[in-house]
Every structure is written in structure tokens, then in C-alpha cells.
Amino acid sequence: METRSAPEPNRARVASSLPARAGLGFKSAHFSDIEASAPGIGFFEIHAENYMGAGGPPHAQLTRLRRDFPLSIHGVGLSIGGAGRLDRDHLRRVKSVVERYEPAAFSEHLAWSTQGARFLNDLLPLPYNAATLAHVAAHVDEIQAALGRPILLENPAAYLRFRSSDYSEIEFLREIVRRAGCRLLLDVTNAYVSATNLGFSAEDYIDAFPMLYVEEIHLAGYAEDSDEIGDPLLIDAHCAPIQKEVWRLYDRALARRGPVATLIEWDNEIPPWPLLSAQAARAERFLKKRPLASEDRAESEALHDDVG
């Protein structure tokens, strides 16, 4: 697909050493499939919070997986956009999971999910203004200091917007990167969902996104709904194959970014392994079309050497 803007040069990756390949969210239901078929999966991603128990099958499986594949750890509970201070106990738990498994990348969300001692189990939205910017940048700082590494921050899926926002999401993310020195995880589905729900151009969003700092991409299937006046309301449902609009946007992002680690997210109504791995294979085909930037090519070759 033709794009309107030129590729941006890649700079050294600082937050992720994931290969520029397609990865999958790991589900224990697929463990024996993965063991049996040694599939051509570039990496696996897990949610940190599911591996905070003391022992048992989760750790046994993840230890095995970590031996055979690059690993990305995705946090869903740090509540970076929360108004209060970070939950230090939870940060310690994240740190211990990260130290134990030494993942190639750690990512979290531009969202909040806790209030006081209550965990709300959702990625909730925040206005983009000077006050929240200071807050989020300080939280990212604190997390990076605790983990001793830069993190990837993910753009959220939005269903509504705040009147008190003074920045666009992209301006906001750019500013967080500048202040905290983190890197970005571009969720292409979230971009498409937000664009549809809030009435802006998804293409413009992708074209303006600070690709220089993108070190991972997420793709997922959305669900379609509509609001009270019949306008489309897309939901980041993670329970369907990736739709063609999202593939198209992904291709557009890759044209600017060059190949980069790409995760297929499918967390609800989990499909059988062949269907899931076919989604990864499809993402691989998009990745292979794109010339490697020199820095990524060196890393990719090193990886293939390791594999033998």
C-alpha cells in the first residue's frame, strides 16, 4: 500500500530486544500444541499479573516457554494513568516477575485501572492535559527506575473523550517519551477503534505516530456495536480474527516503521491453535514484505544464527 509519508529512520532500540517477527499471546490451553509442533512463532507475550502466584503450572509452563522463545511481558495492573501514587507493592511484584524471566520487553498501558485499594479490571481513559502529563511521566519514571530498564507504553482504545484534554493522544505520547525516555507500543487496533469511535482519521493517526520510538506493535480483532444514535461503536474485544481494515493500517505503519515485533492478541473466546498461529503467519507475511532497517537486520541475523 502506498503511504503519504516517508519512512522514518530507525534509531537504536532501547526498550525491546524482541525479534522483528510475529508473536502470540501465550495461553496455557495451547501449551501442548506449542510443545508438540515447535511452531515458527517469533516470540510469546504474557500478562505479568497471571504469573504472580508462588508456583504451580503457570511458572512451570513459562519457564519452559522462556527457554525456547523470546518473551515479552505485558503489565495490565500498574495503573500508570491513576491519579494516586503507584501501588508500590504491585510494582515490586512486577519487578520480581521481570527479574525472574528477563523478558526482551516490558510494556504497560496509557490508562488507569485501580482506585484506592480497588482494582477495576479495565483500562480506563484519562484526559490529556498538563496535569495528567506530569502524573503519567512521573509514574513511567518510577517504574523504569524500579525495573532498571525503559518500558514500552501502549496507546489505549477509546470509547469517549474528555472535554479537559488539551493535547492530542499523539502529542501526549510524544511528550511522555521526551520526559520519561520510555518507548512506545503501537496498538494498531486501538488506533482504529479510537479513530472510529471519536471520529478522526486512523490513517492520519498512523502517519503522525512517533514511529521512531515504536518497538512493538499489537494487533487484535475488534467487535462492532453502535451507540444510541446508531453511530458505530467499536470495541477492543480481543475475541476475533484481525479485520482487514486493521491489516491495512498495520501495513501502513510498517511502511513507516520497517519490520518490528508484532503481537497477535486474542484473549477472549480463545481459538484453537491452528487458527491462532495462522494469524501470526499472516502478520509474518506483512513483515517479510518490508525491508529491514540496518540496525534491525543485524539483530535479526544474530537471532537466526542462534537458532542455527
Partner: peptide, 8 residues
């Protein structure tokens, strides 16, 4: 299995 913010 499911992460927050992603129900159908």
C-alpha cells in the same frame, strides 16, 4: 486468561 479492558 483474559486481560482487563477486552471483554466482548
Amino acid at each position: 486468561a483474559a486481560g482487563p479492558g477486552t471483554s466482548c
